[in-house]
Nucleic acid binder design. Structure first.
Lengths: 209, 209
DNA sequence: CTGATATGACCGACTGTCGGTCTATATTTA
DNA sequence: TAAATATAGACCGACAGTCGGTCATATCAG
């Protein structure tokens, strides 16, 4: 049967189905035919929209990161907030990844053996999120609550650590191991940014979702 | 033509050729036939030694990590060294990855888009190296040169950061960007471990290889 | 209003590649 | 010489990607 749709609508259908499959089965194990079946289209249609399977992955990652970046940008540009408030708000906005096409993700754990997706997410997150966070840190330095000569690089290190350590796809921690790492991470942030000891304690609540 | 070799010798030939190919072309883009051609053997011979392409990758990673772990273990168990000396020595031993089957790697850059290899290396390095380093840190705490309640977790964070940020496969930094990150990383180590400011300055020399 | 034409969404058979299997044969060892 | 081990390459199924073409719709000429 033949059903005609608008370009963007069809494209999003493909992205949505592919995202669900990539997350649940893993990118490599998901076949083009899986996607075709899920969307209910033919091969040709798929390749009318994307020129490869990897291009779909890139589009999905971009869509996810784009949403996070938008939130972060919005918070960072609020002139009424202190650096610390911004930092908390941005980190809080990342953690629970809800939203239109993300509801699905919460249910399923990140798939181990999904290296491509993990790596691409990581790299894109660093590239797009770190400039925004760096500005917030610089604001915090002016406010005299942070102290470091390397705001940009510190942000990168912290983002990488958090993404890898807390991503279920890399390590499968027990609950108490997770708690331990979250606590340690809070201390690491404080020390790395040169913040007052205990000033990030509130973040524990956020991390323990 | 038919050439018979000892089990270990043939196996190592396969690992060596595969490693070169994985590093230069990337794991996914390297085909079994590429390996067969490089070694000069037939399909059946390959599968006599390994039951899958991924098993070859795992064996390669294990071989690399194993060498690093052995070095680290040897240093860590030297009772005449201070914690700081051990730390330097271990990190120094990692950086320039020379040796029998590693000479090749130095020449070629790490391939971007080699997610499987990067991820597996990272995870294995953390798993096998962090216990050894943790003991060294604990020694340093007893020596009163480090101060942290989370030696294990701190080591994990630092290892992850270093592996990802300094791995050419993830980001391609310019020389001055690399220097900047190395300097920032030195400060991060000091702060994370609660060491005296400047005590890790010597490490810069090591990192700048 | 109506037929011609252009656009692009849609289809699925087909192709080439690749990881992996299977069977045959040669060599070594006991 | 029998069993175990090593080597060979033909073969297979699954999969990503291609290709030639159909069909719906919008626009425009008469």
């Amino acid at each position: 049967m033949r059903i005609v749709k608008e370009h963007e609508e069809r494209r999003n259908e493909i992205l949505n189905s592919a995202q669900t499959l990539f997350v649940t089965k893993g990118y490599t194990k998901t076949t083009i035919n899986d996607i075709l079946q899920a969307v209910g289209i033919a091969k040709g249609t798929f390749y009318h929209y994307f020129k490869s399977k990897e291009e779909v992955l890139d589009a999905i990652i971009e869509r996810i990161i784009q949403a996070d970046v938008a939130k972060a940008q919005h918070i960072a540009s609020d002139a009424t907030l202190s650096a610390m408030e911004k930092l908390f708000a941005i980190l809080l906005a990342q953690a629970p990844q809800q939203g239109d096409h993300k509801e699905q993700l919460i249910e399923h754990l990140h798939q181990p053996d999904n290296a491509e997706m993990h790596q691409k997410s990581l790299v894109q997150a660093i590239i797009h999120l770190s400039p925004i966070l760096t500005e917030v840190i610089e604001q915090g330095i002016e406010e005299n609550i942070f102290q470091t000569n390397y705001p940009q690089e510190t942000v990168e290190f912290l983002l990488v650590s958090a993404q890898v350590i807390f991503d279920e796809g890399f390590f499968q921690w027990q609950p108490e191991e997770m708690l331990q790492r979250a606590t340690a991470f809070v201390q690491l942030i404080e020390r790395a940014l040169g913040a007052k000891e205990g000033s990030f304690q509130k973040m524990l609540t956020i991390l323990l979702k």
